[in-house]
Design a protein around this nucleic acid. Structure first.
Lengths: 167, 167
DNA sequence: TTAAACTTTCAATAATTATTGAAAGTTTAT
DNA sequence: ATAAACTTTCAATAATTATTGAAAGTTTAA
């Protein structure tokens, strides 16, 4: 496989995986492109490479910056803006986990909390609702906590030993 | 909050969270409804409660069965089919993690593997592509493995002690 | 067997989500 | 101040995804 094929395959695969980490296709593809680029890219570069419009590029770059995944860099002697992405996968995973937790999981936990604390009127269906939403809340919480700690502390002694034990 | 409000809130929240675990809204809502129901429900029951069409109900129930989350149950004296979902959140999480891994993560790892093993032609951009896709493959692999083991073995001594240490 | 009860399929349609492109906005150099 | 270089915004449009409903298919009871 040649470089160009490999690059295209990587970008389109990563793009379609976007849904897994909660972002849209263009966003994921821009990030992928920056991720394998050896230098910062301008909006022109990105539009041209991915064949997407200026507006689309602008909006998705903004979102990537909101996530904290992409940053503007100043290239001396250049008027236009250049962009680069976090290159360390560890850091990337950490940011993604934190943002998804904040944007999606935490709000759900809040609703489960509300629902699971309704007044028990003694009926079977109310008891079941309370019981099941409590259980769901507990596991959602646990997995959320664990995921965050793991990506956060992947380097440290604890996780290293966990990994070893799990092999 | 009354039972009906709580129920509605739970179903719609869980439904919109569907994207997080990779299924569509109707699918998630049907699962949510079954999850808090005290007895198996028929297709009629589900259509009526969620106000969705027969076709939609049929297709999404089928998908839930493909995932292994929902099963048909025979209710004696009844001609129509009844459905129920896995009620144990632990088991549920286990199934979801396994299925997502199989359907989405494993195929991506395969592509990353392919891309990261292209011939190194010595150019900087090829080196970068190889390096970054390798890194991405490694972390995707690790998190996939870890997630599966965790939900699989949540009960056991290892995870219990990890949780304790992380508190 | 047959007809009623029930489920599945799938083409048509609706709803949602992503994308475009051009006008408006901003910044910078002179 | 102004005009060129660049970015953002957003209404219109396209693409994608979900949903419907009715016809076709299946099962069961008599």
């Amino acid at each position: 496989m040649e470089y160009l094929d490999a690059k295209e395959k990587f970008i389109s695969t990563w793009g379609s995986l976007g849904s897994l980490w909660g972002i849209n296709k263009a966003m994921a593809q821009i990030q992928a492109l920056l991720f394998i680029s050896t230098k910062p890219l301008s909006m022109e570069d990105i539009m041209e490479d991915l064949k997407i419009s200026r507006g689309n590029t602008s909006m998705n770059l903004r979102q990537l910056m909101d996530w904290g995944i992409v940053t503007k860099v100043l290239v001396s002697g250049e008027r236009k803006e250049f962009f680069t992405t976090e290159k360390d996968v560890q850091e990337l995973a950490k940011i993604v986990a934190k943002e998804r937790s904040r944007r999606e999981i935490k709000p759900v936990i809040k609703v489960l909390e509300e629902v699971s604390t309704i007044k028990d009127d003694g009926t079977e269906k109310t008891k079941e609702l309370i019981k099941q939403t409590k259980a769901l809340k507990a596991i959602t919480n646990d997995l959320d906590t664990l995921m965050n700690k793991l990506v956060d502390q992947k380097q440290n002694w604890l996780t290293k030993s966990v990994f070893k034990l799990m092999k």
